[in-house]
């Protein structure tokens, strides 16, 4: 199993943001976390990536516990993420954003950088070449040299995904990647995510766009008020009356 989460609990003040949440993600699959706003989806991401510490429960990645790791150590272990409210390096170019995402693939340190020791340019060229390849996969190679902040919103989302891929992770956590995208962009995104899965990458997806979730996810966990209320394949989730009640209200059908 790639990722195992068991009994995960986190309180903020007296309120349980996440209570006894557990799920497993197998290698090469897309796992979706859905649920109303405030259900605890982003908190789960923050717990996995080490931004928050769980009150109880454990998270195992590739059989090893992630307990107590700092966010950068979680990345080094092979899990990267995107953010619901974009966290691009706005003053850097599109290419530099992706090159920074590949930080773990480089070795050049502080002193060697100051002195521009031999070998640095070669390493930088290699990383820049790999970053450009990644950018061409998301269709951003033509804007590689403009500041990230100058990109239209949809392309900023794609750039953040490209950046999270740059270090070659085993698992990426995508926090509402389709939020703010128009329908054409959302379709392109879904195709891209499925292509990544074909290449062997695993993903955990938090997303409100049900069409996308049902199309790309292999398994889905529904959270409501911090608790998992149902887990299964997209078809199973769509047929679960409790999900429909909790998530969409009594009368609606999931898309």
């Amino acid at each position: 199993m790639l990722l195992e989460v068991q009994g995960l609990t986190k309180h903020f003040g007296g309120v349980a943001a996440v209570r006894d949440v557990g799920f497993e993600v197998s290698e090469g699959t897309i796992f979706a976390l859905i649920g109303p706003n405030g259900a605890g989806k982003t908190t789960v991401f923050n717990l996995i990536t080490g931004i928050l510490r769980p009150d109880s429960g454990f998270i195992h990645f590739l059989g090893k516990p992630l307990d107590g790791l700092k966010p950068h150590q979680v990345s080094a272990a092979g899990i990267t993420r995107t953010f619901q409210n974009l966290q691009l390096f706005n003053g850097m170019t599109v290419l530099e954003n992706v090159m920074t995402g590949a930080y773990l693939n480089g070795k050049t340190g502080f002193v060697r950088s100051l002195l521009r020791m031999p070998g640095i340019n070669a390493e930088d060229k290699l990383i820049s070449k790999q970053a450009l390849t990644l950018l061409s996969e998301v269709g951003l190679e033509s804007v590689a040299d403009i500041p990230a902040a100058a990109l239209p919103f949809g392309q900023q989302r794609l750039l953040e995904i490209a950046r999270s891929l740059a270090s070659g992770p085993r698992l990426i956590l995508l926090d509402e990647p389709a939020a703010g995208l128009n329908s054409a962009e959302t379709k392109t995104l879904a195709i891209f995510l499925k292509k990544l899965k074909q290449n062997g990458l695993s993903m955990v997806l938090v997303e409100h766009d049900m069409e996308t979730v049902m199309e790309v996810a292999d398994r889905i966990l529904v959270l409501n008020f911090g608790e998992g209320i149902s887990e299964g394949t997209p078809a199973e989730i769509q047929a679960d009356p409790e999900v429909i009640r909790a998530y969409l209200g009594e009368d609606d059908q999931i898309a």
Binding site: S75, T80, Q87, L88, F89, M92, T100, Y103, L104
Partner: peptide, 17 residues
């Protein structure tokens, strides 16, 4: 780039490893 990343977004910098 890593230093500039810190000044832009510390969370994202950590995520980049």
């Amino acid at each position: 780039r890593a230093l500039r990343a810190i000044s832009e977004s510390e969370h994202a910098a950590e995520t980049a490893g």
